[in-house]
Write a protein that binds this DNA or RNA. Structure first.
Lengths: 351, 351
DNA sequence: TCGAAGTTTCAAAACGTTTTGAAGCAGACT
DNA sequence: AGTCTGCTTCAAAACGTTTTGAAACTTCGA
């Protein structure tokens, strides 16, 4: 394995010059640089990352710690995100150190990994309100990036979708179709994304002048069975008039909801309109639903490269402010939504 | 961040002595060692891995590269294995660097990670026959451990279950119940485990003197729908008399097979006995099946600690021979198996 | 021809550890 | 007193890079 010293010996130069030549410093003579790059190639030189890291103080690795769910089921999104993330990091020569957290204390696993001081920063996923991990890492001055927005005004990098807008847009679309009795099958509001969506839903409904009975809102960890159960309860009409439209937190929930409608002989979209949020996971393709789902769509994988780049840039010293991205999900209208039936209300009310 | 130099300055010792004291070298005075460990704790000393790595050539990290499946579905077992593995590695202060391979060349991702020379060894999963990765790593002299047995006589560490015995035991159990028409719903034989199980099945059937029509053997990547389809074809009786027993490569396959039996109004275990291999994934609990499944059982999680330990020991210089474990799966008899119906053969034939 | 300014290269320090070879210091034996 | 042990400690080298501050070499104008 050739080293800088080998190259410098070969060419009669100092290691300093060789190092500068290879790292593109401006003060080295063009002719010298050519000789160096040529020799480096000829000798099969590969920089020793460990030595580089010792002197730069960087490790070239970032950590990610995923929380072990209580029911031990694999997170649907996990594999997809890991795939995109490692690819995006690899493109910038950074490796991902992964750990699974089994502790009650949310910061314990971060502390452990920091102790072994082997990562330059962290990727945080699934943020909650006032996330303890954020406080912990900020306190220690460790760079990190958050996948998913937590609040508007923060001083760390993040990439997320505007979850408030997700449901605000869905509500606006449905009310424009004449719907006023709209239900929400939300995720668990302990997670920021679901809390934001709930606010977006409430705000938009208030804006449209639609009352929201508490029975029309349910929150739980997304699953098909949750979608089925919650939708069945709402659609059975036992607790009052049923909703004419339903906003589902995920396509998985929507799958359950559609089944519930089917079991109650309710037609979608004739009797019930359904809008879901679609993370574009390959396993649950919204377009393959029957009927094809109208969705607010933002592929999870889109987040991977921005996240990786933001973290690496932030570690490199870039200020957080320029590394905050909030994208607005796209509304894709398919066949699961239609104007509200039999209400006598114009599908295009003046707002 | 305290360094060795800080400690040595604090105590008026040389860094060499401090280093030896902390690393448990025998030649340091017990009293000195106490002073050093005390000061280290007081100053919050953490060894700098990068510096250690530079001089020792070890990084305290191991790599694992998972293959991105063509259909992009997450491997059912992936999360479970990662969880156990990172926990077992953490117990010995080793971190896991994860990458997802998207290349056609099976060794490219290993090469890339080695270039960044940041891991001491690898954990290989899902071995195939004559695995190219094995040849590659052996050629480079990189330590690794294989999850799953590939062949009896190899010179690298592995941990796996005796897949030959898995099906040999299942066949022995079923033939003892009088079954002679036994079908196999196997995994894809490109993977070693499935190839071994096929051999175990064939050998044991031959041993028992039972002919095996080709229609009684199917191989495919495990899934519920595969189990359903394959079982339906075999049980419909269109291609000849149907099997009286079925050995399923996984509980997922068994779920499909049970559904097929149900759809054909075949009782389990009265008309059909079913034995499945159970990796004990929390999502698919064999005991919760209806009827509760008779299984050959070996929890995947059991493999994690032995794998982690074997790799770390091997990196530390332990010879491969002592780090090879082949466990025999346990046969657990539940309610999905019964003596063969209406054959006049004693359920306990003399063997 | 001289000095100044600019360009290019260099030697050495630094990063934090492990390891080598040697030395200091007891006590024990001549 | 001298030397030989065994125990304990030390200074220095090494790992391969980046970076600093200075030196050498050009080029230019006076």
């Amino acid at each position: 394995m050739a080293t800088l010293k080998d190259i410098s010996a070969e060419l009669g130069l100092s290691v300093a010059t060789v190092s500068r030549a290879l790292n593109g410093f401006p003060e080295v003579n063009a002719r010298t640089r050519d000789r160096v790059t040529d020799a480096a190639k000829r000798l099969g030189y590969r920089p020793n990352r460990v030595a580089q890291r010792l002197v730069t103080g960087r490790s070239g690795m970032v950590g990610m710690i995923v929380k072990l769910k209580a029911d031990m089921t694999a997170d649907q999104t996990f594999f997809d995100v890991i795939t995109g993330l490692t690819a995006a990091l690899a493109a910038r020569d950074v490796d991902l150190v992964l750990a699974v957290d089994q502790h009650a204390d949310p910061t314990a696993a971060y502390d452990r990994m920091l102790e072994r001081n082997v990562v330059d920063g962290f990727i945080l996923n699934a943020p909650v309100q006032d996330d303890a991990r954020v406080a912990f890492l900020q306190d220690r001055g460790i760079p990190f990036v958050v996948h998913g927005q937590t609040a508007a005004e923060v001083d760390y990098p993040f990439y997320g979708i505007d979850n408030w807008a997700v449901n605000a847009d869905a509500v606006a679309f449905l009310t424009a179709l004449g719907h006023r009795r709209i239900a929400l099958l939300n995720g668990d509001v302990r997670w920021s994304y679901a809390a934001d969506r709930l606010t977006g839903f409430r705000d938009a409904m208030a804006e449209a002048g639609c009352p929201v009975p508490e029975a029309f809102i349910s929150t739980e960890r997304p699953s098909e069975s949750y979608g089925y159960t919650a939708a069945l309860a709402m659609l059975s009409g036992r607790a009052g008039p049923r909703p004419t439209a339903m906003i589902c937190g995920s396509t998985l929930i929507a799958a359950g909801a559609l089944q519930a409608a089917r079991d109650l002989s309710l037609g979608v979209p004739v009797d019930l309109s359904v809008v879901a949020h679609d993370d574009a996971l390959p396993q649950l393709r919204a377009i393959a639903f029957d009927p094809a789902l109208t969705v607010t769509r933002s592929p999870l994988r889109d987040a991977c490269k921005p996240l990786a780049d933001a973290l690496i840039d932030h570690i490199g010293g870039a200020p957080a402010k320029g590394l905050q991205t909030l994208v607005r999900a796209e509304l894709i209208v398919r066949n699961s939504t239609a104007p509200v039936p039999d209400t006598g209300v114009s599908p295009w009310p003046s707002t």
